[in-house]
Computed example of a mutant assay.
Amino acid sequence: MSNRFEYQKEERDGVRIFILNGSLDISTVSPMKAELDSLFASGQHRVLFDLYELEQIDSSGIGAIIALFKRVKSNRGEVKISRLIGQPKEIFSLLRLDRVFEIYDDFEKALQSFR
């Protein structure tokens, strides 16, 4: 298992997009958590996670995403997910998070859903 994790962020149409790559786990989640905290503090309440390149996620990675989801929802914002595949998709399904999050197979459709 690789402990490689990277993310890119961009902004399109007022939506902050995080493109996650590698393995989001206990050893890699800290910088992501800090980024999400500062994102929330800045008042950004429309977030899209693109998970096509995410190979693995563990409970700490899930926890970071859920924590942001709760904070954003309480401020009438939206957190959505696009291109969830492989092990992360299995975890989301196992934890029934596919019933909590709006998940899109297509990145552009996910982005358009914020309008």
Rank of each mutant, 00 (worst) to 15 (best):
L97K: 09
L84P: 01
G61I: 02
L39I: 10
I65D: 08
L39R: 04
K89H: 13
L68G: 08
L68T: 12
P31R: 00
L97M: 14
A41E: 12
Y52F: 10
D58V: 13
I65H: 06
M32W: 13
S30T: 10
E53L: 13
S30H: 04
A41C: 03
I62H: 14
R76P: 04
F40I: 01
M32D: 03
F18I: 05
G43T: 03
G77M: 02
I81V: 15
I66V: 15
K73F: 14
A67H: 08
T28I: 01
D98C: 04
K73N: 15
G77H: 01
A34N: 07
V47H: 10
K80S: 15
F40W: 03
L95W: 06
E53R: 13
P88Q: 03
L97P: 14
E78Y: 07
R76A: 15
L84M: 05
R71M: 06
G86I: 00
N75F: 10
G86L: 00
N75L: 09
A34T: 05
A41G: 03
I17M: 10
I57W: 04
R46L: 07
I65Q: 07
M32G: 08
V47Q: 09
G63H: 02
L48F: 06
G63Y: 02
I81H: 01
Q56R: 11
F40S: 03
L68S: 12
Y52P: 00
L84Q: 04
Q56M: 10
